[in-house]
Design a protein around this nucleic acid. Structure first.
Lengths: 229, 229
DNA sequence: CGACCTCTTTACACACCTTTACAAAGCTTT
DNA sequence: AAAGCTTTGTAAAGGTGTGTAAAGAGGTCG
């Protein structure tokens, strides 16, 4: 069953949308403010979020910014202003799609489905552990080996995890928190510089093996693997 | 030419609205009952419908329900004053927007345009990070690089974010609040001058790389990127 | 045990971002 | 037109985040 979380302070609209989405076969939870949403997401795994921008207290952008520090769950944003700029701000902050209020519920349904379809495609890649290839770099999770143009890369275990995670998100920013979780299985603590050191070492190895890949620092946000070719 | 169909049993109001919308550049047909409306849409393709709920015979809901069996044409509904239930029923049945009577014709115009814009937008691909090109400047989010006529621009992370946001809105004013949200991920606080400093630095770099782009200040409102070419 | 490997922490330099401070420009009030 | 207030431009100071060498802390293996 596909689980959705609806976050909108307009309770009447929420109820209506929830009912409509349930009638289409989704399991729907609804909360009416940003903080409740963050709490909900902590204890329950959702397939997608429908998030209103305009809310008292923590608004939609705030929720999204917080969320993107540790989660890649698909988010569809709703905004009252039919304003293109809000849409772009949202998308740049990591929303997956956008719908301006008022909207046709059927369009919401179509977009929720589209967002789910897209995320499904990328999680299929995740679930399957067939080799991941970008340019001259090939990484195989099942044998935990990395090949740089047919040459085996000598990577430590953590380096492998870090590079693998970066490679899966090539072209996108990943936060240190995400890297810490996925490569070392723990939360990032204050003054923890491990990730930085692994990055430093990985950069050396990338150039040492002549790979046209760069690890770009995005100050205050994280790192991004870039394919120069 | 954009084609509209007006459906309202009030002939005097219809005539007035039709004339007003024509003066704004639309092609407008008007009918005065639900059945005529359904016949009209069978033989003619409209870009949007303006549909009154309260009509003798087949009312607006009836028209909409029938219509949605075979058409996705954008529909703007006119409802009785402050009738919340009508609004919800209408949206649930697939209306794209609603307006309560009596209304300002200019608001009708704005909403018709909004509905048209949305219906056009909804087919566009969303969350797109393909390179953005304006004149000699090309910015690519997936590699976080900016090229000034084939020369890589040396930009800091935040400068990149700011310029990217300005570029997406080239020719339009963007507020400092929006810039702060999209480039730094936080709200603009009072006495916060960071954006101003980034603008100052970006202006230096734009001229340093010989780009024919100016960052224009719009006092009290924000900034605007202008292509001089 | 010591030699080796890996990961983490420390330490310092540097780059980047924000704040401060003041000058200048623009708008409003008198 | 002058005075007063607000907003903006920008140099410089201050604070924070990042790069990386080196030392420390565990672990494994002979």
């Amino acid at each position: 069953m596909t689980q959705l979380l609806l976050i909108d302070d307009d309770k009447e609209l929420s109820a209506m949308l929830a009912e409509y989405l349930r009638s289409e076969g989704f399991e729907v939870d609804a909360v009416f403010d940003g903080l409740s949403a963050l709490e909900k997401v902590k204890v329950q795994q959702y397939d997608a979020l429908v998030l209103d921008v305009m809310m008292p207290g923590l608004d939609g952008f705030g929720v999204l910014r917080h969320l993107r520090g540790y989660s890649a769950v698909p988010v569809l944003m709703l905004t009252a202003k039919g304003d293109e700029v809000d849409r772009i701000v949202g998308l740049e902050m990591g929303a997956d799609d956008y719908l301006s209020k008022p909207f046709n519920p059927r369009e919401l349904l179509a977009r929720v489905r589209a967002v789910l379809r897209r995320s499904q495609q990328s999680t299929e890649l995740v679930a399957d552990n067939s080799p991941l290839v970008v340019g001259k770099l090939k990484m195989d999770m099942s044998s935990r080996t990395a090949m740089a143009a047919n040459r085996v890369m000598e990577l430590t275990s953590t380096e492998f995890n870090v590079l693998y995670f970066l490679l899966r998100q090539v072209g996108h920013i990943v936060t240190k928190e995400m890297l810490s979780q996925s490569a070392m299985g723990r939360s990032l603590e204050k003054y923890d510089r491990s990730i930085d050191m692994h990055m430093s070492n990985l950069r050396k190895k990338l150039s040492q093996y002549g790979l046209p890949l760069r690890i770009v620092t995005v100050r205050g946000q994280g790192y991004q693997l870039v394919d120069k070719a």
